[in-house]
């Protein structure tokens, strides 16, 4: 086929408005968050003492940390989806981990040594490890689908960004029902769970997001 003929075909297919990738991604994020939240209310519920918990520093801190992880990842998804990204949006990725590190240091400085181990182990680390990935799945599916329409320079990185974002969403939801608020617990088990989602999404991305 001649190039002029190809151009004719492309022009014929181009005769309708295009939805910018940013819109596609933000719609996918909203839909994914709604679906993940629905799943949360289907299989879990906010902890019974949530009213009292929001008045404790540790519970709020936990939510802020996972919120920062999700927000940083959301900006990074929009960045990684482009073929020629500009700006330095990776930096915000460090905000969540940095806050958490400060929290861990404060916890170690203030809590008695004898309480370190029970705080770290928590009540149900296995719940945390399995439920965060499960809750993140609907969001991850929506985001990866939307990213198929993107043109990432590095598909694995774009996949990982989507994994981090959906892992963050899963963690925010799980945090509402999780009785363990110590930064020691969050730094270990939440990180592992979110990291697992990120790794899986990076692998899927490297295969499925190539264009």
């Amino acid at each position: 086929m001649k190039t002029e003929e190809l151009i004719r075909v492309l022009a014929a297919d181009g005769a309708r408005p295009v939805i910018p990738i940013g819109h596609t991604l933000s719609r996918a994020l909203m839909l994914g968050a709604v679906l993940s939240t629905a799943l949360f209310f289907l299989i879990l519920h906010p902890r019974a003492d949530i009213g009292a918990a929001v008045q404790t520093l540790r519970f709020d801190f936990k939510l802020v940390v996972v919120g920062c992880v999700a927000a940083g990842a959301a900006l990074f998804v929009a960045y990684a989806a482009l073929p020629a990204p500009t700006g330095r949006r990776q930096r915000l990725l460090w905000l969540g981990p940095l806050l958490l590190a400060v929290g861990v240091i404060l916890e170690l400085a203030t809590a008695p040594v004898s309480s370190w181990f029970p705080r770290w182990l928590g009540h149900n680390a296995t719940h945390c490890l399995s439920l965060i990935p499960l809750l993140s799945l609907p969001a991850l599916g929506c985001l990866l689908f939307a990213l198929r329409r993107a043109a990432p320079v590095r598909p694995a990185v774009a996949g990982a960004a989507a994994g981090l974002l959906s892992g963050g969403i899963g963690a925010i939801l799980y945090a509402l029902s999780c009785p363990d608020d110590s930064p020691l617990f969050v730094a270990t088990w939440y990180s592992l769970a979110i990291g697992a989602v990120t790794a899986i999404a990076a692998f899927v991305g490297s295969r499925w997001l190539r264009w």
Partner: peptide, 20 residues
């Protein structure tokens, strides 16, 4: 020309990733 056509096709299908 093979590569040119492949690039054109990609530009077309990914034109939604150009930021206004």
């Amino acid at each position: 020309e093979d590569v040119v056509q492949e690039v054109l096709l990609a530009l077309h299908l990914k034109r939604n990733t150009w930021v206004t």
